[in-house]
Write a protein that binds this DNA or RNA. Structure first.
Lengths: 197, 197, 197, 197
DNA sequence: CATGAATGAGCCTTCATTCAT
DNA sequence: AATGAATGAAGGCTCATTCAT
């Protein structure tokens, strides 16, 4: 990658980041190109140099988030600790990311309304890839007999729902800070899985 | 209430219902008055005869949903069965309602961006009232020693998150029908609460 | 005229009166049928029973005002006093009417934009008739050698302009009441006409 | 000011000018952004690029007219000629401007209905400033003993009314051209002031 | 690369007008 | 006679998008 290409790539990421933060607050229709640009002290015109249109910008920002989440999941999954600890870490990481960026899965509630079929396919594929990271951990736990036997897909979705929702009710004015809260939630959620003995 | 007043009230509810269904799909900015009207074979103008403006219409539709949920919660709470059964019923009712109407708490993700302070106050008050319905059941369970001791508010939000999220992944093409799925989810979620013995 | 016809005529006048007062404040486009009706505790529908459309309503209210002014002028003109006194009375009456009703000629600044050619013809004819009342007085004064010789049409318009404008700057918070002010203005304006000797 | 800024300023003035001419014909509610734009072969959207909204555009056009009138008044007032000549010039200039631009004070009959308190304050302040230009001339004349002693404010308003009204009855189909007519009117109006001897 | 300017489609909202009852 | 309801046309305003410089 040449220097110019690197610069371009960096700028693109900045824009995506700006887009993500505004999109997650205001939703697709509530977000204007003006705002995205203004947050970076750019003009609308410049943003259009890097992205063909708003829809494309939103799409790539979704992809970015999902890829980051997947990478994160992979790095956790490859760690050499117990399943329980790995799953706990994954949940906590998800919550912290969701709160910090106000985004994650929550960002796009009804992608069908916005994206083209081929874009949707990519998004669902990545969502699924991320989801499967959880599935694997759950299955690993079941095999290791530390988790109950259960319908993995359903439980995975229950967990994701519980932790995506955090952005809606957590406010940092409370006594508990982000990490503390994330740990607490993780423990509660994992009650669904863990076998008592 | 005279016949005419009844008719008006009915029409208003129809419009609110139409608004709810589109709103939950497309969000505030994605919902147009045109669509809300078209779904009822009316014209925009007619809708404006019943509601002053879009914001007001969508506010009232929020209120309607919340009131319905609260009523539902109350009727469940007054039943003469065990706490566990009551909570299970409440969860199932919530899921079924959410799936059928694609709404529930999920409907409005960032009401702060849309409603006026006095409107927000009403919404939050009702949300809280509904949430307290769950809290009561949980506390009752703890006292009856069938639920673990826990931070009620947090667990309530975890449960609500898990069951609101259902609208995002449940598709009725599967083998399980709504009720079956709702029961299954309820059972999983209640693992967080129930004491083993 | 039958009783019914009388009732209808009375209602029509009430509506015209309401229309005049709102029209003079807000102008043609700024006045809504709703407002005109509301001021009389009627509904829009009822107003349409008496007048075909807004334009027609406005037209008839113009005619009403002009006819009243003309009648007033005639009654003054037929009095058996000096020209100077008659003109003075006419000016004072005009001012008082303009202030009280905030209307008069001022009401409709650009009738060409609103009325149909045949309506315009009628309005201009009545305006002219009213104007000629002033002209006659002026001419009478010239012949009687108490007024200077002058271009009657121009001077008449100057006078009308001066006294129509009163509605724009007179506010009754001052020390002078309506009549006092009207007399004062009349005296100043008549300086244009009266021969010194 | 850079070239671009100059261009922008010029465009803004063009738009204001267009607004003034339509506004004076049709009044606030009768004037549409479409028309204002169309007169300049622009689109509505472009106009909104330069002015935030209709109200703001029309406010600024008011300000523009008032400032021009004030400047004009100042330049006349600073001339080294007799009071009578200066006042005569001021009146003639006002009439010519009013006829040419169909505006002047006449433009906005009930600004209270349209502008915000702070905007109104500015407008009234400028109106007053312009009016005081006349007052000064009148007072100067009284002191120089060429004008009668009189209530300056009232007479000033009489004069303004007389000359604002010209737009309503003057039509250039007649034999007299603008300037000729303006001079004639000025002479008549000044009869109110000038002492005979 | 960046940006100021322009555009047009779309949406919210108002309001004169109509009509069945 | 009166009115509640419905309608559609029009107007204000926003915003994604384009383009010349």
């Amino acid at each position: 990658m040449s220097l110019r290409e690197k610069k371009t790539a960096k700028k693109k990421e900045e824009i995506l980041q700006s887009a993500v933060s505004i999109l997650s607050e205001k939703g697709y229709h509530g977000t204007t190109m003006e705002e995205i640009a203004a947050k970076l002290l750019m003009t609308k015109g410049s943003v259009y140099y890097y992205f063909n249109d708003k829809q494309n910008l939103l799409f790539e920002s979704q992809i970015m988030i999902l890829n980051r989440s997947i990478q994160n999941m992979e790095s956790i999954n490859s760690q050499n600790v117990s399943v329980i600890k790995k799953l706990r870490k994954a949940i906590i990481a998800h919550i912290e990311y969701a709160i910090r960026e106000r985004s994650g899965f929550v960002m796009m509630f009804n992608p069908e309304q916005i994206f083209s079929p081929s874009q949707l396919e990519q998004i669902f594929q990545l969502r699924d890839e991320y989801g499967k990271g959880f599935d694997q951990l759950i299955e690993e736990g079941i095999e290791a007999d530390v988790f109950r036997s259960m319908d993995v897909k359903i439980v995975r979705n229950i967990i994701l729902g519980a932790i995506n929702w955090v952005t809606q009710w957590y406010s940092d004015d409370g006594k508990k800070d982000e990490t503390e809260m994330a740990e607490l939630i993780a423990d509660y959620v994992m009650q669904i899985l863990i076998k008592d003995f």
